[in-house]
């Protein structure tokens, strides 16, 4: 097990990278902050200190948590559908969540629940609705191929995109602009409230996924195969679909539909550390976090002082990656 024994090293390396990257990204930028000043007791009260503690660090953390959640959602869908192209984003779940959020914006809802805004709740409902449709399609017709699932996802994406356009059309100019800007993805955060809220959803969600990693290992082989090994496939799938709706819905409502992370990150890590989900889980969680935090840093600095929406950066990377996966095609071991 030469390769397998390197997995703990990979995970340790990713963990170290995550910590270092979080710190560097929060220090770098304009103005750049020297790491030595973090030890200065007067730093927290200074202008740079407020930039660091109130703006940059929360933003980096939000990016990290959102990236981690998206990567885990992607890993789960890729395993359940046995196809690296099948992720919440490509199957239309993000678009469904966006539709829910757009409806909430349009209706001007202000009520919230458990500290989550109505936009968050509607985004979750949109995500859950889409996942529900996918679940029904996958269960009712058991022989549904992943190719058909992907096409159904494309259809759902179109459907919800049109619905979002309709909501935008019915909105006034300001509301419409807000929606467009929000649809490009955004990781703005002031203070730690949003990162903490996201963490409150991510942690239990991720724990459930980690709990089911042994099940996922076998589901990737095949549903009947997993069932004959003792996996309650129907129940596991139901639970996982619920978790993915929750993760995707919350991330989309906080940050907009940031695409392709759920596809790229788990796939690259599968190439690096293998498809054993007990390891792939930690790889995706850390890798997704690092990746989105870095993308956001690029977005902030690309044409300073303007900020490019982070969703544009991930899509610019993800679109070609998607094509690359298609071209590599079935000859590849990892094209499931």
């Amino acid at each position: 097990m030469k390769r397998a024994s390197r997995r703990p090293l990979w995970i340790a390396g990713l963990l170290a990278t995550a910590l270092v990257v979080t710190l560097i990204l929060a220090l770098a930028g304009t103005p750049a902050i020297s790491p030595a000043r973090l030890l200065d007791p007067a730093f927290a009260g200074s202008a740079d200190g407020r930039i660091f503690w109130q703006l940059r660090l929360p933003r980096v953390l939000l990016g990290f948590l959102a990236g981690a959640a998206l990567a885990i959602g992607g890993m789960v869908f890729q395993a359940v559908f046995r196809n690296p192209l099948a992720t919440p984003f490509t199957l239309g779940v993000s678009t469904g969540a966006s539709f829910g959020a757009a409806v909430a914006v349009k209706l001007g809802l202000v009520a919230g629940l458990l500290g989550f805004s109505s936009v968050s709740l509607f985004a979750f409902l949109g995500a859950a609705l889409t996942v529900g449709i996918i679940y029904l399609l996958a269960t009712v017709k058991q022989e549904f191929s992943t190719e058909v699932m992907l096409l159904a996802g494309v259809a759902l994406s179109f459907l919800f995109s049109s619905a979002i356009l309709l909501v935008q059309y019915l909105s006034d100019f300001t509301g419409s602009y807000q929606m467009v800007r929000w649809l490009m993805g955004d990781l703005n955060a002031v203070g730690f409230q949003r990162p903490l809220q996201l963490a409150a959803v991510l942690l239990p969600g991720a724990l459930v996924v980690r709990w089911l990693c042994l099940d996922l290992n076998l589901i990737l082989v095949g549903d009947d195969f997993a069932r004959s090994r003792g996996v309650d496939v129907r129940r596991v799938r139901l639970v996982l679909f619920g978790v993915v709706s929750l993760l995707t819905g919350v991330v989309v409502s906080f940050c907009g539909p940031i695409g392709f992370i759920g596809m790229m990150v788990p796939h690259i890590l599968r190439l690096l550390i293998g498809a054993e989900h007990r390891w792939l889980f930690w790889g995706s969680l850390l890798g997704g976090g690092i990746f989105l935090a870095c993308c956001d840093w690029v977005a902030r600095g690309l044409i300073f002082p303007a900020e490019v929406p982070v969703g544009i950066i991930t899509a610019l990377l993800g679109g070609p990656f998607f094509l690359w996966l298609l071209i590599r095609g079935r000859s590849s071991r990892y094209f499931m």
């Binding site: 097990m1 099940d215 095949g222 195969f225």
Partner: peptide, 28 residues
């Protein structure tokens, strides 16, 4: 699954696992 095991018909899809790692998963 502790009383009965099942060897399915060989199908097109091959999971991206190594032999020993795959066998270990069947200890589920």
């Amino acid at each position: 699954a502790r009383l009965q095991s099942y060897v399915p018909q060989a199908k097109g899809y091959i999971p991206p696992y190594r032999v020993a790692e795959f066998l270990l998963m069947n200890r589920f």
